[in-house]
Design a binder for these strands. Sequence first.
DNA 1: CTGCATCCTCAACGATACTG
DNA 2: CAGTATCGTTGAGGATGCAG
Lengths: 126, 126
Amino acid sequence: MATKQFTGSPEDADLRRADSLAREIFSDVANKWAFLIIETLGERTLRFSELRNEVEGVSHKMLTQNLRMLERYGLVERKVHPTVPPRVEYTLTEPGQALRATVDGMCDWTHQYLGHIEAARRRFDV
Amino acid sequence: MATKQFTGSPEDADLRRADSLAREIFSDVANKWAFLIIETLGERTLRFSELRNEVEGVSHKMLTQNLRMLERYGLVERKVHPTVPPRVEYTLTEPGQALRATVDGMCDWTHQYLGHIEAARRRFDV
DNA sequence: CTGCATCCTCAACGATACTG
DNA sequence: CAGTATCGTTGAGGATGCAG
């Protein structure tokens, strides 16, 4: 991250604030569940249970927890249909879509370098 | 991730294998310390202690642990100078550099949407 | 169906100490 | 300086149950 050296000057105060906020966002969002949710959400709108099925291995708790976090940061929109049984739909917002682009980049990267990585790992694991 | 439905056909076997490997890599690499290390390593070569200083808040243990993981996947190269005291340098490999591009993308994203995110968070935190 | 809360377990993590 | 190992603590995360 572009963390630079701050002086004690007052105009650096909000720079430092922005920086710590950026760091906080970074720490929260850069985790596998958030990424996988963003990725499977893609440009579709999905219900909670659909996400639960499509994001392989995620628990009920982790899913809600990460969805709350993403909602809090405004990356997903949560739409509740007041029916019975309830129907809750999640959609990526524009910032969410923008982030998805970089997550996609990581997916591409993973597949592109799968060979390199597998070979490196075999070499490492004596 | 591009996880699709597999049939029982034999030629799907290695697809499934590749997929699970991709998933494994994804899960390991998509964590904040790995990202912060990759980001601060940039195109420079850094010593262990330099990384320790520059990656704010990382513990000795987390740093070694993540460096091993990144080395195992061939994302960083570890060069030991047999001097006394020892001098160990870490450099991003080409796959590491490639991944750095997407991590950079996330950093840009973070700063670009800082306003949106902060506003959304204030709205959420009633 | 979705969400929240509770409990419980285990692994992540930090601190410390010791080796090369 | 860099790495490994050990220990103790905390928190993440799974399971379960209940409410709306």
